[in-house]
Every structure is written in structure tokens, then in C-alpha cells.
């Protein structure tokens, strides 16, 4: 009998001790080392370079993201981020059904281009049913139609020293003290020339809606949604990313997100 009492008491003791350690998980103690620019955060962010290198090593240059069947499109594509840009240039284009839209292709190219939507539609096209993975964690399957980015780069004759393709967008995001900041993104040449990387003007068999990035948005199917710039206004080929935005390669990257979003 006494044995059982001891055991009960011991159970109460250990449960109490175990429970008292739980509030220690309160983690604002770690906030300092994790704030923007903190040494520990910068060191940990280097893991993204490792992920980038290892994935580039493991994933074949042309290995495709999974494509789905029509029956797996069960809902409209969920819009996220900007859904209705208010930039005056954009509003003017939108009101004329993008008749005056031109995609400028410049930077490290031998032949800069200025392409209308009709010209883009008359180039080779690709339609793919793919899964969009948002950095937040959700996924959505939709059918995208557009011109392969590789075809545009070939038309513009990309120079050999170009290492990145930078996308400048019409939409701006309000960052409080920093004011309005234009969205931009960048990918490497390997992803730029991937067969599924397209500049999409169609979604689920209809023209690309404004909420999803009309008139033209990027699809980079082996990365997360924030890489897939919407409302693309111009493309620049560059050898490094330092001169764009804060120099991290994209709008969200400048706010602390990883440049390589294959994970």
C-alpha cells in the first residue's frame, strides 16, 4: 500500500515539474536574434543557399512539375497578394482592355523587344494544368496558358553573361513608412528556360483575370507562388541582382523571404 502512495506522489511531482517547464517555451526571448539583420538570422538564412544548390544538383534541369487532368480543376484559382492594382498606368491599360499593353524585354539582350498581347499570343504557346503552392501553405490546381519564357529570351537573343531574369510589375504594395513599393521578382536562367516556365495570359480556358495578374503573369512551376510575378510590365536580363530593390532579388525577398523558393 505504501508503495502505491509513493508512486502516486511521485507521479504528481513529476507531472508538476513537467508542466512547469511548458511556459519556458515562451519564445519572445529569442526574438532579438531573429529580427531582421540579426547575425543569427543571417547565418540561418544561409541554409537557403544550401537548399538551392542541393535541389539544383538533385533536380534535372528539365524535370517537370506534376501536371494534372481537367477533372482535378475543382475551383477557381485563388487570388492572393495584389488583386486590383491602382497604379495609374495600369488603370489606363485595364480600361482599354490592355490594347495598348507592351511587354518590354531589355537588359542583357542583343535585341530589345516591345511585344503586344497579340504578338505574345501568336508566339508558341503552352497549356499546363499545375498545382500552385503558396508560401502560406495552401495549394490550388488550375490550367495556365502562355508563351514559354525561353521563346521570348531566344527572340530577344539573351547575352551569355545574363544570369537572372528580373520581372518588373505594375502592382505596388504599401509598406507604411517605406511608402508604395513596386513588386518585382527574379529567377535564374535554368528556371527561366525550363519548359514549364511560361508568361501566362490565360487561366482555365479564359483570358487571365485581373485578380490573377492580367494581362500577363509568370508561372515558375517548381517554386512557390511568390516567385510568380503578376501584372508583369517588363523583363530585364541581368548578371546580378544588387541594383534591384533592396538587392535581394524580389519584393518579398527584400522583406526577409528566401530567394530560392523551391521548398
Amino acid at each position: 500500500m505504501s508503495r502505491i502512495i509513493i508512486n502516486r506522489r511521485r507521479l504528481l511531482t513529476v507531472t508538476g515539474v513537467a508542466a512547469s517547464t511548458l511556459p519556458l517555451a515562451g519564445c519572445d526571448a529569442l526574438d532579438g536574434m531573429l529580427s531582421s539583420g540579426a547575425t543569427a538570422r543571417d547565418a540561418m538564412a544561409k541554409a537557403n543557399d544550401l537548399t538551392y544548390r542541393v535541389q539544383r544538383f538533385l533536380i534535372g534541369a528539365d524535370s517537370l512539375a506534376k501536371e494534372y487532368t481537367e477533372s482535378e480543376i475543382r475551383q477557381g484559382q485563388r487570388p492572393n497578394g495584389s488583386t486590383d492594382p491602382t497604379d495609374v498606368t495600369y488603370i489606363a491599360l485595364r480600361d482599354s482592355a490592355f490594347a495598348g499593353y507592351r511587354l518590354d524585354v531589355g537588359g542583357l539582350v542583343d535585341r530589345p523587344l516591345s511585344l503586344s498581347l497579340d504578338e505574345l499570343r501568336n508566339m508558341p504557346s503552352r497549356t499546363q494544368i499545375t498545382r500552385h503552392d503558396c508560401v502560406e501553405g495552401w495549394s490550388c490546381i488550375a490550367k495556365w496558358t502562355g508563351v514559354p519564357l525561353a521563346a521570348v529570351l531566344d527572340e530577344a537573343r539573351a547575352k551569355a553573361e545574363a544570369r537572372y531574369v528580373v520581372f518588373r510589375c505594375f502592382d505596388t504594395m504599401n509598406l507604411g513608412l517605406s511608402g508604395e513599393v513596386a513588386y518585382y521578382e527574379s529567377i535564374d536562367m535554368l528556371d527561366a528556360r525550363h519548359p514549364q516556365t511560361i508568361l501566362a495570359y490565360g487561366l482555365n480556358g479564359a483570358p487571365l483575370p485581373i485578380a490573377n495578374g492580367a494581362p500577363l503573369r509568370l508561372r515558375v512551376e517548381r517554386q512557390l507562388g511568390y516567385k510568380m510575378a503578376k501584372y508583369v510590365r517588363s523583363i530585364e536580363l541581368a548578371s546580378d541582382l544588387a541594383s534591384y530593390g533592396q538587392g535581394n532579388g524580389g519584393f518579398w525577398e527584400d522583406l526577409g523571404y528566401d530567394w530560392y523558393a523551391g521548398i
Binding site: L30, L34, N48, Y257
Partner: peptide, 17 residues
Amino acid sequence: AWLTVPSYHDLATGRVV
């Protein structure tokens, strides 16, 4: 907040960690 790092909402840093 006491079950997350950082304690405030910061998806980018959550992913880095």
C-alpha cells in the same frame, strides 16, 4: 505567441529557422 518563434507573426523568419 508563446508557442511560436519569433513570438510575433513572421512567416519569412519562421521558414528561415
